[in-house]
Design a binder for these strands. Structure first.
Length: 697
DNA sequence: GGGCCTCGAGATCA
DNA sequence: CTCGAGGCCC
């Protein structure tokens, strides 16, 4: 056989196998017997062994195994993979539909609907028709490259069945494990004496996080596509339903349960319909998803913070189970908050075993009237934290005891007080309290704060128990001698921790502020404060008035920050840390974007800029892009075929710009710099998250 | 909150 | 072999 003949034969084999795979894995309707399939596959491998040069990445043989990875690479998403807002109650669904109708000015809206798979969201990238990369959702902007594992999933096409595939196509979807495959896998695990997986979702998640694709290849993973991401050279698509149709044509598995519904009544019907079928479905779902069908309408609605306004996940009610409260203990939080926690007889609910559930606070506990020994209903839905719903008083045993909020902190013996209008009781011990001290230290060392690797909970417990760390600055006084000798701390580990502590001395201002653990100051507020004041000195010197000027800082946060720095002790600890070498570069304040506080509306087609490009430029300049024209709109940017929004702008006397006008508005400094020969005084500060466009589908 | 994977290193046993 | 820590997912 000549190389040419071999290449042809291989081509044919690949196509036939892809065809059979499609029928087997996607349509669930096998065309040939397993024996016949295996024969074809063996023939392919034989040919490839004889002509290794002819092996291509889309060959079925490349689906099994491959090299194990050392670690996962991270991948920047071209289009952010955002999460959806949730609706549980009917009122929330109605509110969603109302907002959509008002935003669009329509009496009734057409929605594309589909089940909400309980798996892991991923994105697949096809370049010129070839599957080249797959990644997890991650934080929505950056995910993990799991191409090697996705390669092993037969339901994912290795090549798009198109003669002229688009240069780029991103497919969004969910990896999951079918219920029957999950059962089978767990039987195998049991037979092998291995640990059982708790539920299909976790089995799928675990499989996808394998470094070795050979293991993943033996896990029966499935995939459903539910949307498109970025694309180049793909046909123009105007609705979600059309996108799904396109994906089905490309032989992606898409849910047969998808539908198009009209108005909120249609949504309700669909919810009931799928809810009734839920237990019979071959896979787990945790609700249904509604998306405004027309892309044009989606675009008008836009996004609120991190979620689209044009879609919502309607979740099924949380699964409930019955168990017994064996004890109620209290936890002392970082801020001294005393939280009662129910210790439950372990119960399997919502796919996991629940043993603890927070009871939030005393009032909550009284309202639900939960005693130790009570039989209770617990609830858990997806990522919702387990909760005790109610007690069954009729089943209360004679020896049941009521919970008594301690008057003294169980950790340090300080008084527990509850402010007049406050729901939470607090330990007044402050850092005297070992519980608070431990959490302050753990928080200080955590990844998003000072990022001291190796300084975890167990080690901190020991450090506090031995009194090696009383205040945060003591962390910077730790030596290998002091550390080694502690539990699970031999020389090597001790050295690693000391090295990590040393490395953390090179900090940044926002991280340091966050690490201090000031009440009500989270990561975002810490950034705002750092940005606004530029240096720690300025922040320490700020009075309430000055603090109130910071973005998103209100009276509560201002008071907390002010009080924190009023405390001599806190200033001393900070000074001590700096004396021990903790440092950070001061921040050069960002020049306010030219469009700070302005809201713009885009309409029509601009001559050179794409809509999302224009939006990115406006946002980079501090402006907001809104979908609809109102009195608050600062400018309307109108292109060709601008419609009703332009009319409304004229009506409201809102300034209207064309593309050139927008560009001129965005670059006055540049114009100045050129005409007057001065340097533009713009200092850029590396943004934490890349400015990316949200998912438009 | 709970479950999963991975890694390094300490603990244990032959 | 086991534990602690870190990371990631919902």
């Amino acid at each position: 056989m000549s190389v040419n003949e071999a290449a042809n034969a291989l081509q044919q084999l690949k196509q036939r196998i892809a065809e059979y795979d499609y029928h087997y894995y996607v349509l669930d309707d096998p065309l040939v017997s397993d024996a016949e399939y295996d024969g074809l596959y063996r023939a392919l491998v034989q040919l490839e062994t004889a002509y290794p040069a002819l092996i291509t990445p889309d060959s079925p043989s490349q689906r099994v195994g491959g090299q194990a990875l050392g670690a996962f690479d991270s991948v920047q998403h071209r289009q952010a993979m955002l999460s959806l807002n949730n609706a549980f109650a009917d009122e929330e669904l109605e509110a969603f539909d109302r907002r959509v109708r008002e935003g669009l000015g329509e009496a009734e809206v057409i929605y594309a609907v589909e089940p909400k798979f309980d798996g892991l969201a991923i994105t697949l990238t096809y370049e010129h028709g070839l599957f080249v990369q797959g990644a997890t959702r991650g934080d929505g902007y950056t995910g993990e490259n799991v191409t090697h594992n996705l390669n092993t999933i037969r339901a994912i096409p290795a090549r798009l069945p198109l003669e002229h595939p688009p240069a780029l196509l991103e497919v969004r979807g969910e990896v999951l494990m079918l219920k029957k495959d999950f059962e089978k896998l767990n039987q195998q695990q049991a037979a092998a004496g291995a640990k059982l997986f708790a539920n299909p979702r976790n089995a799928a998640a675990g499989s996808l996080r394998q470094l070795d694709p050979n293991i993943t290849a033996r896990r029966p993973l499935h995939f459903f596509a539910y949307g498109l991401g970025a694309s180049e050279g793909a046909p123009e698509i105007h609705s979600h339903a059309a996108a799904m149709h396109y994906l089905a044509d490309l032989r992606f598995p898409v849910s047969a349960l998808r539908a198009v519904k009209q108005g909120v009544a249609g949504l309700r019907d669909y919810y009931a319909e799928i809810g009734a079928k839920r237990s019979q479905l071959p896979f787990d779902i945790d609700g249904v998803v509604y998306k405004v069908n027309q892309f044009e309408q989606q675009q008008i609605l836009g996004f609120v913070s991190r979620a689209p306004r044009w879609a919502v996940a309607h979740k099924f009610p949380a699964e409930e189970a019955i168990t017994v409260v064996e004890d109620i203990t209290v936890q002392v939080g970082r801020t001294g908050a005393i939280t009662p926690v129910a210790r439950l007889k372990p119960v399997f609910v919502g796919g996991v075993t629940v043993t603890n559930a927070t009871l939030h606070n005393e009032d909550e506990l009284r309202r639900k009237d939960i005693h130790i020994g009570d039989t209770v209903v617990v609830r858990r839905a997806g990522d919702v934290i387990p909760e005790v719903v109610s007690a069954k008083p009729e089943l209360r045993p004679a020896n049941a005891r009521a919970f008594v909020m301690p008057t003294l902190c169980p950790e340090c013996g300080s008084h527990v007080v509850r402010g007049q209008d406050e729901a939470v009781a607090r330990c007044t011990g402050g850092l005297i309290c070992p519980a608070q001290r431990k959490q302050a230290i753990t928080h200080f060392a955590s990844r998003r704060a000072m990022d001291i690797e190796g300084l975890g909970e167990k080690l901190v417990d020991q450090l506090v128990a031995c009194n090696l760390v009383q205040h945060l600055d003591d962390v910077y006084r730790l030596s290998t001698d002091q550390l080694s000798g502690l539990e699970r701390m031999a020389e090597k580990s001790a050295q690693n921790v000391v090295d990590a502590i040393e490395a953390s001395k090179q900090a940044t201002l926002p991280r340091f502020i966050y690490a201090l653990g000031i009440r009500n100051v989270g990561e975002a507020t810490a950034k705002d404060l750092a940005q606004h004041f530029g240096s720690l000195e300025a922040l320490i010197g700020a009075d309430i008035q000055a603090l109130l000027l910071v973005n998103d800082v209100g009276p509560v946060v201002a008071e907390a920050v002010y009080q924190f720095f009023q405390e001599n002790h806190n200033r001393e600890v900070i000074a001590a840390m700096r004396a021990l070498g903790v440092q950070w570069p001061d921040i050069v304040k960002k020049v306010q974007g030219i469009l700070q506080g302005k809201t713009l509306v885009l309409t029509g087609t601009l001559p050179t800029l794409k809509r999302d490009e224009a939006q990115a430029m406006i946002e980079a300049a501090g402006g907001k892009v809104s979908g609809s024209v109102s009195a608050k709109t600062s400018y309307v940017v109108a292109g060709a075929e601008a419609g009703s929004k332009l009319e409304k702008a004229q009506l409201l006397n809102i300034p209207i710009l064309d593309e050139a006008g927008l560009l001129a508005l965005l670059q006055p400094e540049e114009a100045l710099a050129v005409t007057h020969g001065i340097e533009a005084a713009v200092v850029t500060i590396t943004p934490e998250s890349p400015s990316q466009q949200p998912d438009l589908f």
